[in-house]
Design a protein around this nucleic acid. Structure first.
Lengths: 189, 189
DNA sequence: ACCATATTAGTCAGTTCTGACTATTCTAGA
DNA sequence: TCTAGAATAGTCAGAACTGACTAATATGGT
């Protein structure tokens, strides 16, 4: 079906995600990708093409199975369902992943690191722009978090993103404030 | 020299990093990789093999140039130096990257999202383990941040990681506390 | 005297990811 | 009645990344 390169299954969050989504109900490809795009955009990065390749591999390994579901005129859906083996593997993966502390390495550090090579006024403008973006993300995270209660697991994960987004914004605010002060005192002299 | 696949240069933080490191001084391959491994581990993920491939491409594009430097018995070093074009491109990249607000998508969300599928006691134990890891990372970030003053650009970037690490730890603490309470009240009945 | 680790410099096969692309049908609006 | 866009389902070539590997010397500790 799709090009399948290796014989091992990747032991990463993406695999866990697909299995997890199928734990709750059977879904067809479009549904899965649409769900991820709509609701999980902030939670994980998983592109359509990658998802299809992963699904093919999961099926190859007998963790999921698919049946065709005719749709009248529309292209036939492939509906995926978790097998028993898949359900077991999901539990196994979950147990392995949950306690793992992943290093928190956000993007966007490198340009900051070299910002001394730019005039302070330019840096200030750039950081302000970033701050605006960060405020937006925070608002989005807030909205998402409010939609599902933090007592549920999903809410818990969303809350994590909320906290991290807030920290990022606060850091940016502090940085902007510091730069403003520096520029001010420099201007006064 | 190395397999070079595309003719375009990637416009990402890795490229910016390599150019940036060479802005400050000429360096040879081992030095670059060693520096990244030692000091920038928390800032960005860039593997040795990738770095060499990138360096080859940068040279191909005339942004850097290399000279061989004999070392007596030891294998000859290749020392890289930024060209004028490279310096210009660095400034250009920096200007493009600095204002960019990258989506903050940390790893480790997915397992949390599905933690309802595990018994609460197991989840609690797992989160405690994660908390221990997070404390360690926070301590490391703290130490790194204290070593360079936050008035410098590098210090600024390190401070960001510090804030984010703290937020992550705090979130974990809150989550653990909540779970403990829940388990307690469940036990009382 | 010997072993483990650091210094130094890469290479490569195999794996994974992504952007761009192809089709068809349905639906709401102009 | 057209038409633009969403729904639907993927595929594929090419780009990128990584783990594992090779080599030779130096050096510090036991």
């Amino acid at each position: 079906m799709t090009k399948l390169s290796s014989d091992r299954l990747p032991d990463d969050e993406r695999t866990l995600l697909l299995l997890g989504l199928l734990t709750e109900q059977d879904r067809h490809g479009y549904e899965i990708n649409d769900f991820i795009e709509r609701n999980l955009e902030a939670v994980i990065r998983l592109k359509k093409a990658t998802a299809y390749q992963l699904l093919a591999r999961l099926e190859e390994h007998g963790l999921i199975e698919s049946r065709a579901e005719a749709q009248g005129q529309r292209p036939t859906r492939r509906v995926f369902r978790l097998t028993e083996a898949g359900r077991a593997h999901f539990q196994h993966l979950l147990l392995g992943h949950l306690p793992r502390t992943e290093a928190l390495i956000p993007e966007g550090n490198v340009p900051v690191m070299f910002s001394e090579h730019l005039p302070p006024a330019v840096v200030l403008a750039a950081l302000r722009e970033r701050l605006a973006g960060a405020e937006e993300q925070l608002a989005a995270a807030q909205a998402a978090s409010e939609r599902s209660p933090c007592t549920s697991s999903v809410g818990l994960a969303l809350e994590r993103i909320l906290w991290l987004s807030r920290a990022d914004r606060d850091w940016l605010r502090a940085a902007v404030a510091r730069l403003e002060r520096e520029l001010d005192t420099a201007a006064v002299r």
